[in-house]
Design a protein around this nucleic acid. Structure first.
Lengths: 329, 329
DNA sequence: TTGAAAGCGCTAACAA
DNA sequence: TTGTTAGCGCTTTCAA
């Protein structure tokens, strides 16, 4: 920690002999100066340790609900890599799943003068903030309920839910438990819709007793385990479980083991996201994979299309998912 | 996404009848105006959708090596909560464990005109960047090798390593495998030193063959599992494992199960960090707990002390760790 | 390719 | 409590 007073472009101008205008041009890569001038200026910039504070970096804000969720963390990481390759800085802000925090975080990113925000949240609040922003907002994963006006990108959660359920049915399951979460986010609803439609398609009854909902996003493993234990205690019968996330599936698996059920012989399980926990369970957990890297690449592609071509672009893109079968099915 | 041209405080001044100076004061919460003025101004600010872009928010940068590591993600989350309570915005930047990215990320945060940076990285590079910064940098977890000049905060990794090893010894282990990582970070070295000193204290031999090092931070579970499988194949004998992280411990546990060893009867295991994976293993994993919330609280306390009192404060703080015993010991 | 000078948006000193 | 005014740091225009 050094100077109290920051060096300004005036200092660089003085030391280099150029005018502040030239320094400004060089720092903003605007062109209209010689290579030699650039070198001289940049050397003095380093020498004086110019704060960069005012340099116009390319900035992207990333808004997430929860970084302790591995799928978010991994997708953010992929986004960072893609953005780094284009020399964009990215700044992450997390609401920690607190809705009232969304406004605060969005304003925080806005204050950075970012070129765009990539939002993993699509609440009404955020849609309204995005509408009045002077830069594009791209929604991914939890997209708005009416995606019409914005760039939106999501995995095919509906088909994922359908395929997961279909797999369990094809393996002989007749009574499939669904573990969801009470939340307005689009992703959970789509997965549950896929589950219900698969049951219908195979002429199995849709039993509300078999659709369990967690109340909070915290401790998905423990809450899900307890929920399944409770279902067993209540003598609810089932021979398959489709959980809306891997951690919930893993908790369910634990509940079954504790109660002496054999997996996959008596009861089969499949999760969603294909995160690392799948490979750490025993038996290893089957899951619906949504690829973080593919998600990140398409996001950045859309974003740069937006930034460079069409400032009023609206588009809704759906990425395919795939089944990864392991020991629990 | 709306206006091409941002509204400025001039617009608000015109519309409200006040001068730009008053608007500036209100926006920066500097006081010296009536409650009524504030309300009038803030209403027009909302009405005109003033960009906030220039509003002087209180900003803190957080620099982390890897957000997919649960301990980092959880500690960052706690930091965010503490900072939110003080109305500070925080901006997270991750190097994704790539050393050459440190400069890029630090500059990115500097460009935001943050009041301070909290860094989970303490490399030479960062020390040099911190020295020439015009704001305080607080190092936590992976603190610099010569912490003298800065605010530094870490868990007692040495004692943690010592206690973990001691616990295994007291439970009867004579040949304890250590799983570390080839990295200059202070934390791993301290844990390994604690391991070695505990062995010495109990007059057990320090066998280099029993100290395994992972080469990369990626896939700790898989790499650790493979490493232990390899050790078993090579007929290296051991009856206890101290792993320098929970995921490495979990991978080791998996390797033992695959090879037909019973845990904790034949071989005991303990990890480090006490992350959620400990409760998801079977048997549940014992671990050395370093509390994310305590870490965050002390960090913020030190930081605000620095920001409000002494601008040239240097201090090295060490937080206690505790053993959490579960099924693997 | 460069500089002088004007301008923009914001802050701070001072006066009322 | 508020406005006037000067000033700061940066960008942009215009002329050379």
């Amino acid at each position: 920690m050094k100077p109290r007073k920051d060096t300004s472009i005036k200092d660089i101008a003085a030391k280099s002999g150029f005018s502040t205008a030239t320094i400004s041009r060089v720092l903003n890569h605007q062109g209209g100066y010689s290579k030699e001038t650039e070198n001289r200026v940049m050397n003095i910039v380093k020498e004086l340790n110019y704060s960069i504070k005012n340099q116009n970096l390319q900035k992207i804000g990333i808004l997430v609900p929860d970084l302790t969720n591995e799928w978010f963390a991994e997708t953010v990481r992929c986004l960072e890599e893609e953005l780094y390759a284009k020399n964009f800085h990215c700044y992450i802000s997390s609401t920690n799943e607190i809705p009232s925090r969304e406004h605060f975080c969005f304003e925080g990113l806005t204050a950075l003068k970012v070129s765009a925000i990539i939002s993993f949240l699509g609440s009404e609040e955020l849609v309204s903030l995005a509408e009045s922003a002077s830069f594009p907002v791209l929604f991914i994963d939890r997209i708005p309920q009416t995606p019409g006006k914005f760039l939106c990108l999501e995995s095919d959660n509906y088909i994922g839910g359908y395929m997961a359920t279909e797999l369990l049915i094809q393996k002989g399951c007749k009574k499939i438990l669904f573990i969801g979460r009470n939340h307005h986010a689009s992703v959970i609803h789509s997965r549950q819709k896929g589950y219900q439609d698969a049951l219908k398609e195979y002429q199995l009854p849709i039993n509300p007793e078999l659709m369990l909902q967690l109340e909070s996003p915290d401790h998905p493993y423990e809450r899900s385990r307890d929920l399944v234990c409770y279902a067993i205690k209540k003598k609810i019968e089932f021979d398959g479980i489709f959980a809306s996330s891997d951690l919930r599936a893993s908790g369910a698996l634990q509940a079954l083991k504790q109660n002496g059920f054999s997996v996959p012989e008596q009861i089969k399980i499949i999760g969603f996201d294909d995160t690392s926990v799948c490979r750490q369970c025993y038996p290893a957990l089957s899951s619906v994979r949504q690829d973080p890297l593919a998600m990140a690449r398409h996001t950045i592609e859309l974003l740069f299309w937006q930034l460079t071509q069409n400032p009023h672009l609206a588009k809704h893109m759906v990425l395919p998912v795939s089944i990864v079968e392991r020991g629990t099915t």
